[in-house]
């Protein structure tokens, strides 16, 4: 086992994220990483690579396919995958919270796998955070565009200034308890329909 290069598979439909997890674990010795995308015959494709460790987002619907890797032909040889919670349920809990689960070959010590998993979780969380921030920025930009268009429509329809149009939309949003971007979207949609 000790001379054996640790084979780690990362299953993710998002290759960019998978690579990030790889990079985050790169400092670890004796490990070879492969990326596998979900899809038909996933379990067989993974089994063919004879992994020591499979990393997959716990909320990935393909995760149930991994379960097959845990079942051997006979009860005496359970070749792959003992779920980590057999040795440490706190770790499993942490992994579930982090959105990453790890399957580990029988015989691998948690000490050896721990750093890999920790690094994977850390990278995963970081990337998720960056993603969320990016999404928020994108949404804000979208909102601004719609609000600008709606402002223009209101200005033309009511013959009022830009500031007045914005104030009108804001008052409407406050009265209805909705976001100004939602009001703007409704105005744009209505204007398209009435065109």
């Amino acid at each position: 086992m000790s001379s054996h290069l640790l084979t780690i598979i990362i299953v993710d439909s998002d290759p960019e994220r998978a690579r990030t997890i790889c990079d985050g674990s790169a400092g670890l010795p004796d490990a070879k990483y492969s990326l596998v995308a979900p899809g038909p015959a996933l379990a067989r494709r993974i089994a063919a690579l004879r992994p020591d460790l499979v990393l997959i987002d716990a909320d990935n619907a393909s995760r149930d396919e991994m379960e097959e890797l845990t079942i051997a032909s006979g009860p005496m040889e359970r070749p792959v995958a003992v779920f980590v919670n057999q040795s440490d349920s706190a770790l499993t809990r942490a992994m579930i919270e982090a959105g990453v689960a790890a399957y580990v070959v029988d015989g691998l010590t948690p000490g050896r796998v721990g750093p890999v998993v920790d690094a994977a979780i850390a990278r995963f969380n970081m990337l998720q955070k960056v993603r969320a921030e990016l999404d928020a920025t994108r949404a804000a930009l979208e909102d601004r565009k719609v609000i600008d268009r709606a402002k223009g429509i209101v200005m033309r329809a009511r013959g009022i200034s830009e500031d007045e149009a914005y104030a009108l939309m804001r008052r409407n949003a406050m009265e209805k308890g909705r976001r100004i971007a939602d009001i703007a979207r409704a105005i744009v949609t209505a204007a398209e329909v009435l065109k």
Partner: peptide, 16 residues
């Protein structure tokens, strides 16, 4: 709501 039986099983097992 959960997308896989493995995750649901683990959530129940871990007390989530």
């Amino acid at each position: 709501p959960v997308r896989s039986w493995s995750l649901l099983r683990d959530m129940l097992s871990s007390g989530h």
